[in-house]
Amino acid sequence: MTIASPLHLVPDVTPPRLGLRAYLACFRGIVWREVLRFLHQTERFFSALVRPLVWLFIFAAGFRQVLGVSIIPPYQSYVLYEEFVTPGLVGMILLFNAMQSSLSMVYDRETGTMRTLLVSPFPRSFLLVSKLLGGVSVALLQVFAFLLVAYFWGIELPPVDEIKLFTGFESPGWLEAIIPSMKEPVIVSFLAVPAFLQPVAGYLFVIPALVIAGLMLGSLALFMSSIIKQLENFAGVMNFVIFPMFFASSALYPLWRIRESSPLLYEICRFNPFSYAVELIRFALYGHVDVVSLLVVSACTVLFLAAAVFAYNPSKGLIGRRGGPGGPGAGGG
């Protein structure tokens, strides 16, 4: 076989400087690939959807009579348990997705897919953040598919006529010490929503909340699976990360009810960043910015991201699992 036509490689020994447009092209390429891959895996889409729906159709229906939810912000009227638990289940979709995509980044680090990502000339931190946001985009598709089914199940979000700032959700002790007013619930009107957007405002307003919460969970997952070897299979992740984080949070029950039954568990839930992710999403669905949750989730995102980029070591898997690529089991030497 002969070469059909020259590629003109030689002039390109001085490749262009990587400017903003190149970064954008790279980011778009990484995110789009994750979305394409997800859309081509129909069974993955359905299994991702079935999990929260089982909780909604069965668990929530069963609990409706057991657990009453009184009127607490952001709710303006008494809500059914199904409606209360919906943001928690959205959080669960983000949590599972974050774990799955971060785990594969660690587990696949010696495959060609991950290695071609890492030989890209862009900074490794940028590549990892882009990859995490690719995972978040997939989670967004799952969340909206879930919310659509939930809508037909009768969980309709009320129209939002204005965006409100809210402080007063169970804030962490350290925050109350700095800003004493955090203890008192305050709701401030912030921005009026145009009439034509009001019916869907909650669905739109939740998108930024989902992105930041998803990024927080993804980077936490990447950090944990990078440093803890036992987490390299999904059963371990379920037992030691997903279940504790999900159950010891405000996803399934309001925190004031947990305080009534166990003050210790209440403190654990207040320490759990997943609680703040869920509350950020809950308030956003009703057009509120929960300031405390936004602060906590933002701070955790920055912290976990830095830790994940620092801890992610692409060569670790080679050394750890196979005694080095020069070792007997390496194949190809």
């Binding site: 262009p16 790279c26 495959t111 000339p121």
Partner: peptide, 29 residues
Amino acid sequence: VCFQSKAIDSDLSLAQNLAYHASLHGIGG
């Protein structure tokens, strides 16, 4: 680089795969 293990996705088309890898070098459109 061509690594020993596969770097392209079986589920995607050749063009989709190559577009992704071009973007990893900042080449788009």
